Computed example of a mutant assay.
Amino acid sequence: MAPLGSDRVGYWGPTTSTLDWCEENYAVSFYVAEFWNTLSNLIMILPPIYGAIQTVRDGLEKRYIASYLALTVVGLGSWCFHMTLQYEMQLLDELPMIYSCCIFVYCMFESFKAKNTVNYHLIFILVLFSLIVTTVYLKVKEPIFHQVMYGLLVFALVLRSIYIVTWVYPWLRGLGYTSLGIFLLGFFLWNVDNIFCESLRSFRTKVPPFVGVFTQLHAWWHILTGLGSYLHILFSLYTRTLYLRYRPKVKFLLGIWPTILVEPPKKHI
């Protein structure tokens, strides 16, 4: 992480967030504190909106609509945070990460239940967890606490995913492990960005701007974790629809972007 206040001040005034990342502030636009870190959030905003619309069209369970829209909310919050570097916008980024991950956990652990059933006990536990994390984080304002709590939720998702591709639907390993691998690559680049920030900044001063863009590793973290999270929703939805005896297939929109096409169960005559 870059030292707070290490860069110029722009439209949104002095930084008030408890975090400031390695991208030089207001280097591209007077109105956007971290331009590339902001723009990279589009991958967490637009594709999940399409996924939510497709889920509604297919008449699937509302929990998956909530999953897609929760990822969109994370993207919007992160956009606002990196655009302004204001503390209130930081909360709009970080807290929805917890809430969205709780929705993902609910979907994964309810994959093998009857259609449209509701596990109120699990909902209570996840809501209570979210409330405790929110309350503590607002009090202590320690990013490490948030990162650990988010990591616990991701760890639960990883364990559940491994169980599913090992014991239930082994043919989903490709989708499950691709999602996990992309997310872990993003996490690796996030750490490189934090640890070697000064070296990255120095390198950017020596190369053309279009080359320096590719060294904005926090932006790559957004792109990779956004894609990894999106693929996780596809994996979760694929698992659920298989259990409900639908006929899901992975299709590529415009030959590029993965989506789930869900056909209704065959009627037995």
Rank of each mutant, 00 (worst) to 15 (best):
W79L: 11
Y169A: 00
P96L: 13
T84H: 01
I123A: 07
L126N: 01
Y150Q: 08
L157Y: 05
G59P: 01
I144D: 09
Y137Q: 10
V158M: 09
I98F: 00
C80L: 15
I144L: 11
Q54F: 14
G51Y: 00
L152G: 02
V168L: 08
V140D: 09
T134A: 09
R173H: 08
I98E: 05
Y177C: 06
S179Y: 05
V133I: 02
S179R: 08
S111N: 06
L172N: 08
T178K: 05
D58I: 10
I53V: 06
M89T: 15
L71Q: 14
L60W: 00
K141Y: 15
L131T: 11
S100R: 08
R160Y: 08
K141F: 02
C80Y: 10
W167K: 14
V105H: 03
I103A: 04
V165A: 02
A70L: 05
S100L: 03
S161G: 07
E88M: 11
M149F: 15
G151E: 12
L175F: 00
I144N: 06
K62C: 02
P48I: 07
L131P: 15
T55M: 04
I65R: 00
V74M: 11
W167R: 15
M89P: 07
L71D: 08
T55H: 07
V136F: 05
C107N: 15
F104K: 03
C102F: 15
Y106L: 06
I103H: 02
Y137M: 14
V133H: 01
K113L: 11
L76R: 00
G176F: 12
F104L: 15
M89E: 12
I164R: 03
M149I: 12
F155P: 07
I65W: 01
G59Q: 06
Q54L: 11
Y87V: 14
L128P: 09
H82K: 00
T134N: 03
T134R: 05
V127G: 10
L128R: 04
F112M: 11
M97S: 11
L159S: 05
Y87P: 02
G77Y: 12
G151L: 09
